[in-house]
């Protein structure tokens, strides 16, 4: 396929993200990458579970966590997964503007999530003196949840750079795989959050 066909396709195929070999490679490679990420998070979860009661007489999960805030965060992130699905739907229909709109909403929801998380962390630090260094539980909590938050941050920056870079040129076979891998990534951090919510917050409050 010539460069012109890749950058300026006359019609976009039904699955533009997998129309070139590079696109197919990226798609598959990213799935494998997520496989590795799963082990990454599994290791962190394992660490957290074995240290979650090691509070060294400091504040415990039960003392601090409030489910209402975390509930709102969950809603924001889950919704952002849905909006990224809309974006990909429009990508496959070659509706660039609509795709950008939904991606923008996705990013904003992500930002909302992130702000609440930052608020949450500052709250624990100022109200309870609960820090990364307070106890093994503190280290494990901030590492696990922070690692996820770091992923969200990276995702937002990634999305912003993708949107700015491609704002003027529309969809083609070169950038469609990029948008698609972003959305895979975004779903993944969403799924991880479901586990964070369950293992850290629900089990912290109830278990």
């Amino acid at each position: 396929m010539s460069h012109h066909d890749v950058l300026h396709p006359e019609t976009l195929p039904a699955e533009p993200e997998k129309a070139t070999l590079e696109g197919r490679n990226k798609y598959l490679g990213f799935w494998f990458f997520l496989g590795g990420e799963t082990v990454l998070f599994a290791s962190l979860f394992g660490t957290y579970i074995s240290l979650r009661n090691s509070t060294a007489d400091g504040p415990s999960a039960h003392d601090m966590f409030g489910l209402d805030l975390v509930f709102i965060m969950t809603i924001l992130l889950l919704t952002s997964s849905l909006t990224s699905v809309y974006a990909m739907y429009h990508m496959k229909n070659n509706a660039f503007k609509k795709m950008m709109l939904w991606l923008g909403i996705t990013g904003l929801l992500g930002l909302g999530f992130l702000s609440l998380e930052i608020y949450e962390f500052t709250h624990y630090i100022t109200e309870y003196g609960f820090t990364f260094r307070s106890s093994a539980f503190g280290s494990a909590f901030y590492t696990l949840v922070g690692f996820h938050g770091g992923h969200v941050t990276f995702g937002i920056l990634w999305l912003a750079s993708l949107m700015i870079r491609n704002a003027k040129r529309g969809l083609n076979l070169y950038n469609a795989p990029k948008f698609n891998t972003f959305s895979l990534y975004w779903h993944f951090i969403d799924v991880v959050w479901v586990f964070v919510f369950t293992v850290v917050y629900l089990m912290g409050k109830v278990g």
């Binding site: 240290l51 090691s54 509070t55 060294a56 260094r133 106890s135 093994a136 539980f137």
Partner: peptide, 15 residues
């Protein structure tokens, strides 16, 4: 300054 493996802060070296 984290305390994953620091027993005095509740850590566990076996992890």
């Amino acid at each position: 300054g984290a305390a994953f493996f620091d027993v005095s802060l509740g850590g566990n070296a076996i992890i």
